[in-house]
Design a protein around this nucleic acid. Structure first.
Lengths: 225, 225
DNA sequence: CCAAAAGTGTTACAAGTACACCCATGA
DNA sequence: TCATGGGTGTACTTGTAACACTTTTGG
């Protein structure tokens, strides 16, 4: 370890997910320069020597979205030799889950900026670098995490209804779940705290809940169906 | 992306697991130089610019153990600013699972070398750098993977008995499983192919099996108990 | 009284758990 | 014939799946 070796560059890429109108969206930026000029890409940037990987990811998130807080998890490190035509660049990928309110703010802030946009994961453009592969991997991880942990609640406001949860799950898995079984299952986990009924709705007012546990805990959520 | 930024060093560390005498072991090396001189550490080294992360891990594995093939999986990338006193070093950790035969060869090759040794994960020495944290994380991942995938079979020879599998699981989870239920569960997965009875044993000859699926596939193995 | 979404229970089936004895072989 | 490890079945409990109607509110 005493010798000096040539060093690779290290970037952090961050895949920002949100659910809007029951559709899973991902935030992409349009590249202004070569390589892959005018292609869409996952936002990211070089790490600084004085910041941890996680802080680099947080900084990126803040720079791209203005958001200070979101569920953030390291995804995987991609380091193939030729993944970047400019030279050896290793990227540590993170993914972030925004709650509905935060996501709305961004869409407002950025709809007039041409180089940042939300894309439905069902209709993605061609992506720069190996970003399609990275995104694909992120989607796999996302589903896995939704199935076995409480990360899904990070995409909801602090107080939410059972229907909110179910719609979020139906969006992520792109399938419908039986209402009675879904509710039974979620309630049986004992992770929700009732918070009283929602007011001023023009139908039967739903019960609101908050999450008792820390977001991300392993619980085994889904019915198999 | 056009500017040149100061670059961190990037290493690959590889946590090598094997099961010996129904005990989970990890391969550690004794550091010959500062920092952490004479401390035990997870083997690793700097990546080369012309090799992928995975190839760097394979090369490390080969250098440390002489083994060409093992189940190998990226674990996590550790990049805290002060994890290495010599400067900014990011490490991409991998873990490897050796089968019983390979593991035996290594122990033979290295028992007379003082700076490489197998340690029971139950009795670990103090480790250099943040290696205790890394190893703890590896153990967590290992259990998770055993619970939900077929990685466990990578620690067995190509042909094995149901008792072999059960003992491996009992070692990893450090608990006993009911023989009948364990067998029923494993067989019900439909992932095993019978390979005939073992010969020359001084008791009732057990049925041998091989794995039909690719190692690492998700199947959900364990009884909950 | 209508529209909209919330809320609820039962039966059938599958999977998981607990548990103890006989079997085949070589020495 | 004995020692050793291999192999097996059943009753019970728990969890999952399928399925349709009533309730509450605001307009």
């Amino acid at each position: 370890m005493e010798k000096e070796y040539p060093k690779p560059s290290v970037t952090v890429d961050i895949i920002v997910f949100s659910v809007q109108n029951n559709d899973l969206k991902v935030l992409l930026i349009k590249r202004a320069i070569d390589p892959f000029k005018d292609n869409w890409a996952i936002p990211g940037g070089f790490i600084k020597l004085e910041e941890s990987l996680e802080n680099a990811a947080k900084r990126e998130l803040k720079e791209e979205t203005g958001i200070d807080y979101a569920y953030l998890e390291q995804l995987y490190t991609f380091g193939d030799v030729n993944r970047d035509p400019r030279g050896r660049v290793i990227t540590v990928a993170y993914y972030a889950l925004l709650d509905k309110e935060s996501a709305k703010q961004i869409i407002k802030a950025d709809t007039d900026v041409s180089d940042v946009a939300w894309f439905s994961v069902a209709k993605l453009p061609t992506l720069a670098f190996d970003h399609s592969k990275i995104l694909e991997y992120a989607l796999k991880r996302l589903k896995w995490k939704f199935e076995y942990t409480t990360v899904g609640f990070s995409m909801l406001p602090k107080k939410f209804t059972l229907t909110d949860i179910q719609e979020t799950y139906e969006t992520i898995f792109n399938k419908k779940f039986d209402k009675r079984n879904f509710r039974k299952k979620i309630l049986s986990l004992g992770i929700l705290k009732p918070e009283g009924k929602m007011k001023q709705v023009s139908n039967r007012p739903p019960e609101m809940y908050s999450l008792k546990k820390k977001i991300g805990e392993v619980v085994g959520i889904l019915p198999s169906q």
